[in-house]
Amino acid sequence: MGQVATLLAQRIALSLLLLFLVSILIFVGTIILPGDVAQSILGQSATPEALANLRAELGLNDPPLTRYFAWLGGILQGDLGTALTSGQDIATSIGTRLGNTLFLAFWAAVVAVPLAIFLGLLAVRYRDRWPDKLISAVTLASISIPEFLIGYLLMYFISVRLGWFPSVAMTNDSMGFWDKLNAIALPVMVLTLVVLAHMMRMTRAAILNVMQSAYIETAELKGLSGLDVIRKHAFPNAIAPIVNVVMLNLAYLVVGVVVIEVVFVYPGMGQYLVDHVSKRDVPVVQACGLIFAAVYIGLNMVADIVSILSNPRLRHPK
């Protein structure tokens, strides 16, 4: 196990280092942007004295390095700062919204990942025959249409014409679990359609690659059925690339849902971020950026760890 432990420790250390570098990038990025926070809070008609006072109060006059470490130190203690525009604690506001975003991403993943892998297996089983072509065509089409368009189309047909699910995914804490699920049904569908093609095609390619191996012939000569050969012998050897693409898509589900949240008026991170970008609320943008980066890096780290653990040569050394 020694070798695996070392590899895993390396992965985790590398991820933390990466996150640290990203935090620098986010901080530097937000301070080199033109514009002045104090100005945008107080408006064009503010007096120079008021601006200077506010700057001093916000600590905008300190050297960047001091500000960076103050910010980083706060984050490490769970303090993301306060929003400039509303004066609210960012951690509290983000808490509920991140919860909502994760809720939506989770259910989208629960539907999309098994479906994508199943369709991938099916496409391999019937490769170059009509089921494979149909699956490829439909998933490709769904990824090619912009997600907001799919969103509006589903809203019109499913919600307005059929009246099955609400067109607006407004949720709040007083709603029960099933009410919430009902509310997010449409965004989950859209997200599923968006991430399905990528995962399904990668599954198909990874398994087809494994299907060239001599041990697949061995399995076929044992008299196993086509689906058994794929499920028992090809899939376990294709896990690493599949997990990689699944994690990339999960990251997208968390980080990339901005458009969908806006379309469905869903109270998640995306909407929160968009609101505060337009108000030039730097601490909120920084906090959101860092959280998105952490999610992205964290999920990719999980993918790396799974592919290390799924390699029998590493798991069971000689």
């Binding site: 001599a214 000569l221 044992k222 008299g223 196993l224």
Partner: peptide
């Protein structure tokens, strides 16, 4: 296949599933 007639290949290393 695998019941009445079975097969031993040249390269067992490649013919066993590594996982």
């Amino acid at each position: 296949r695998g019941a009445e007639v079975t097969y031993v290949s040249q390269s067992a290393a490649a013919s066993f599933n590594p996982a």
